[in-house]
Design a protein around this nucleic acid. Structure first.
Length: 607
RNA sequence: CGGGGUGUAGCUCAGUCUGGCUUAGAGCGCUUGGUUCGGGACCAAGAGGUCGCAGGUUCGAAUCCUGUCACCCCGACCA
């Protein structure tokens, strides 16, 4: 490809709207152009990268035995009604409003395709003999993102590979899950990403295992907890820590502090932990944070028609130095909870917000959910259920129940930096920011049940299909690769997803000999199947070098009068710009050809 | 959806507070000619803007007022 005839609109200036490194570089290198919030054109260079990623994904999915198909972007709203997600995903579903054509009101742009594939399965997958099967597509998705950000990392329109597997038994799903997990490792390794698989939350759909594939970068929007020894990695939404040691009961090494009696302390206007601790002279870890939640009974997704909803009051307890994790709380409660409003709290506790405590509440609430680290506290402090008063000498089990119908003991807090790994190693956890690039998920029968997708087993019995789903964000692979591989001058592409593998740079394009040699190198490399870009523009050297660094093509061959006089051409690796190797033309061609193939093979062999 | 911010040339921005010295500017980029030519050159001459949009105030509005739209950042949200 001759640059002169190509289209690479690079810029020297940094666009003001871009903050993430990948965003800045994608704009500057002429990979993408923003058309609207969260909507991007992929310019030729960016499109080439995207196609390379797409090819890797397709090859590895095919190799893993998945079968490609293509579902529509326009999907009937009725299917989302069937699954119940037209109600639960209202913010995400882009609905056509039907103001021009009434039929359009019945359509939504697909944000994901569980419903669509399940409809397909319902129609065709009738027998256990057809199972298992894994169907996938690479297709545009549309989501009503409230706030697109960080360039291509979070958009309203994006390219996704989504695969769905169908099974007639759990072990079969487990096997395919592992198969997909391995395929994802190959895909990300081949793409040159420093990825990480972490345990993920299974969300509102419950279900079994789920892993997310992450790339660590401050531009990401997920938090992950990683143990120092590497034996544990989980999304912060789900991460847990080693359980607390049981309360010292007087035996053992340190004699237990004697249990004190509850004592009210006047703590005017000190409703927050950081306000009340100095007054009580206690550290936050001796405090019990009492949070009042409201939930609705009988609610369920998937359009279940349960008994009429009833408001439930749920009290959650965590230690004063801990943050509650509402996902964990919801799971422990078996409900979707929301923090109660001040009126509800005051009515329940008889005190203003900030002075709630667990004592004496059990008969007036529907559920008490106690973090396991609260249960082992001794002589703790909490609100007194009396405005401007706290209580010290609060003891779990004595002053509020640790067991009973309404009591749930669970891990409901967010892990913190330095907490011990739950694996037993005790290795400290570190919290990091990351971007999610892939997700594998055991769905179970949620959608097959909701949509009535059943097969007949060997006994002729109708059973819901057991499903798994597996997604990869292709645009995010590009952005994550740039986040992981760049320097001050520009992008440093991994060979496998670089728009071109080799850049031939003719420094004196008006010199016949330079052009003859450079053209020859370009042509021979192209003939050898190398993706080669030839910078034949009549520009000054510095200008072209800056562009070359910016667009980040891994290998560069510089042809100039100077190099020819010195006996050849210069070969450099984008990663090590200082290391220039002067080689005769034929040797340079052989060298980069071999280097490209070796690099691709290395990436393909990585895990 | 809450809070904050920004809309002036393809890009980065000045001018807005204090309305009139601007016939709307600068740098980058673009066009033409010339000089340069191994790390984003220089000289000269050009092209390019209904100052986001709609009302209003005023003799006069990029500038003041009202409304509206778009975009960005923080938060909420994100199976």
């Amino acid at each position: 490809m001759h640059w002169r005839n190509y289209f690479i609109p690079t810029t020297k200036e940094t666009p003001k709207d871009a903050t993430a490194a990948s965003h800045v570089l994608m704009l500057r290198a002429g990979l993408v152009r923003q058309l609207a919030a969260g909507v991007y054109t992929y310019l030729p260079l960016g499109f080439r990268c995207l196609r390379k990623v797409e090819r890797i994904v397709r090859e590895e999915m095919d190799r893993a035995g998945a079968i490609e198909l293509r579902m529509p972007c326009l999907t009937p709203l009725s299917l989302w009604d069937e699954s119940g997600r037209s109600r639960t995903m209202t913010d995400v579903l882009l609905r056509l409003d039907g103001s021009v054509w009434d039929w359009a009101a019945g359509l939504v742009l697909g944000p994901t395709h569980e419903e669509i594939i399940t409809e397909l399965a319902r129609a065709y997958l009738k027998s256990y003999k057809q199972l298992p099967i894994n169907l996938y597509q690479i297709q545009l998705k549309f989501r009503g993102e409230a706030r697109p950000k960080s360039g291509v990392l979070r958009t309203r329109e994006f390219l996704m590979k989504d695969a769905y597997s169908f099974h007639d038994n759990k072990p079969s799903l487990d096997k395919e899950y592992d198969n997909m997990y391995a395929a994802y490792c190959r895909i990300f390794a081949r793409s040159g990403l420093p990825y990480l698989a972490v345990e993920a939350d299974t969300g509102a759909m419950g279900g079994d295992a789920s892993h997310e594939f992450m790339v660590l970068t401050d531009a990401g929007e997920d938090r992950v907890a990683l143990s120092e020894s590497g034996d544990y990695a989980a999304n912060l939404e789900r991460a847990t820590t080693a359980p607390p040691k049981p309360a010292p009961a007087g035996e053992g090494e340190a004699p237990a502090e004697p249990l004190r009696s509850p004592t009210e302390v006047h703590t005017p206007n000190a409703g927050r932990i950081d306000e009340v601790c100095p007054v009580l002279g206690l550290p936050p870890r001796q405090m019990i944070k009492t949070l009042i939640y409201a939930g609705t009974a009988g609610q369920a997704d998937a359009g279940a028609k349960g008994p009429p909803p009833r408001k439930l009051r749920v009290v959650a307890l965590v230690r004063g130095d801990h943050e509650i994790n509402e996902l964990k709380l919801n799971r422990a409660a078996g409900l979707t909870l929301e923090l109660a409003d001040p009126e509800t709290i005051e009515a329940l506790t008889g005190a203003k917000v900030g002075f709630a405590g667990p004592q004496g509440l059990i008969d007036r609430i529907d559920k008490l959910i106690i973090d396991r680290e609260v249960a082992v506290l001794r002589n703790a402090a909490s609100g007194a259920n009396k405005t401007d008063y706290h209580v010290t000498g609060v003891n779990p089990g004595r002053d509020f129940p640790l067991a009973g119908d309404k009591v749930v003991m669970a891990d409901i807090r967010t892990v913190a930096e330095g907490d011990p790994s739950p694996t037993g190693s005790g290795s400290p956890l570190h919290l990091r920011t990351a971007i999610e690039i892939g997700h594998v998920f055991k769905l179970g029968t949620k959608y097959s049940t909701a949509l009535g997708a059943v097969y007949l087993d060997q006994n002729g019995k109708a059973c819901p299909l057991i499903m798994g789903c597996y997604g990869i964000g292709l645009n995010r692979i590009l952005a994550a690769a740039i986040e992981a591989h760049h320097d001050d001058a520009g992008i440093i592409w991994p060979m496998s997803i670089a728009p071109f593998e080799v850049l031939v740079l003719a420094l004196d394009p008006r010199d016949e000999e330079v052009m003859r040699v450079a053209t020859q190198i370009h042509d021979e490399l192209a003939a050898a199947g190398i993706d080669v870009l030839f910078d034949d523009r009549d520009e000054r050297a510095g200008f072209k070098f800056k562009d070359a660094d910016l667009i980040g093509i891994p290998l560069r061959i510089v042809v100039g009068k100077k190099s020819l006089t010195a006996g050849g051409v210069e070969v450099t690796d984008r990663r090590t710009p200082a290391d220039k190797q002067l080689k005769p033309v034929a040797a340079a061609i052989a060298h980069v050809t071999q280097h490209v193939r070796a690099e691709l093979a290395k990436l393909a062999a990585a895990k």
